[in-house]
Design a protein around this nucleic acid. Sequence first.
DNA 1: ACCCTGACGACACGCTACGTGTCGTTTCGT
DNA 2: ACGAAACGACACGTAGCGTGTCGTCAGGGT
Lengths: 177, 177
Amino acid sequence: MLEAALALCREKGFAALTIEAIAERAEVSKKTIYRWWPSKGAVLLDAVSLLAGRVADFPDTGDLEDDLTAQISVIVDLLTPPDSSPVAALVTEGQRDATLGAQIRDDVVQPTIVNFDARMRSAQAAGQIPSDVDLDVAVDLFYGPVYHRLALRLGMPDQAQIRARVRHVIAGLNALG
Amino acid sequence: MLEAALALCREKGFAALTIEAIAERAEVSKKTIYRWWPSKGAVLLDAVSLLAGRVADFPDTGDLEDDLTAQISVIVDLLTPPDSSPVAALVTEGQRDATLGAQIRDDVVQPTIVNFDARMRSAQAAGQIPSDVDLDVAVDLFYGPVYHRLALRLGMPDQAQIRARVRHVIAGLNALG
DNA sequence: ACCCTGACGACACGCTACGTGTCGTTTCGT
DNA sequence: ACGAAACGACACGTAGCGTGTCGTCAGGGT
């Protein structure tokens, strides 16, 4: 069923993602889906969790700029193309459904931020960024551009654009501490 | 009708915003709404335009940090609280409806970015930021944190948090050029 | 070998919202 | 005063939701 949800989202896009369509696609009765998930969003959340393992694993090669560029590129890939990305659909669904939104934040986003913080502290230990930078500020600055462009449909950044933004943020952190 | 849409969104939240509810609230027949707007999102777009005049008017006091903090605060106010903000609802609706999303981008976002660019060039002329900064990077960095926090339900930043982010971005622009 | 349980598919149901259609009435410009 | 345009009231068919009922089928325990 989870694979059916992902496939449907990728093929027909966001709007086609209904419980009834998933049921038909998975050759399963609607009732069975409702037996296991309370809502369409919950199905999506589980489906996305299948392929979101990469996000949590934060690279640490020693080069902060490379690592952040790589990590953010993974997220951009997951959100591309926005109109048929299951992850983008999940984020949007989380806007409408407060319960689902909170679950996404707590189960997916926060663990990722924890790993981000760990990588930042590693960079601080290596003297690549000041030891007193506010990591809440840092996470907003690094990931913000992606969600800005996603929300306002400004087009997803390519590798070079991601790197340019990462470089500016690192510079800002170093300049202000 | 536009006022009814805004009021409904603020009172009952996002989910309650249906064409039928707007019609009842505005004491108007459904048919009349469909005569003037093709979709719920289009109504929202016009309604939001009523109160979005402030966004386009970019302050220029000479202090870049103050101006950006003020401008971004206006946007944060418009997006607060996320669960019942008509503007946040419009952004979300723009994710599902590609046509509406493109219209939002072209009619609302791009004009704002044009004014942002003008303010940046003013700052460049004043020597507050380097003359060769990429303004596409700048707009992502300044506005990104807001949409990052909106999309992932991390809570809207307050004035001090906005200022902290603006300061870091300005520092980054100056450090790299 | 037996049965019991739990998950399942095939329906059918009521509900809400959508988007359209019809028709008679009101409003407004000229 | 008249005609067109906009309107309200109401009905309609459709889609998707979430639930309920019932008969079937497979596995596990005894």
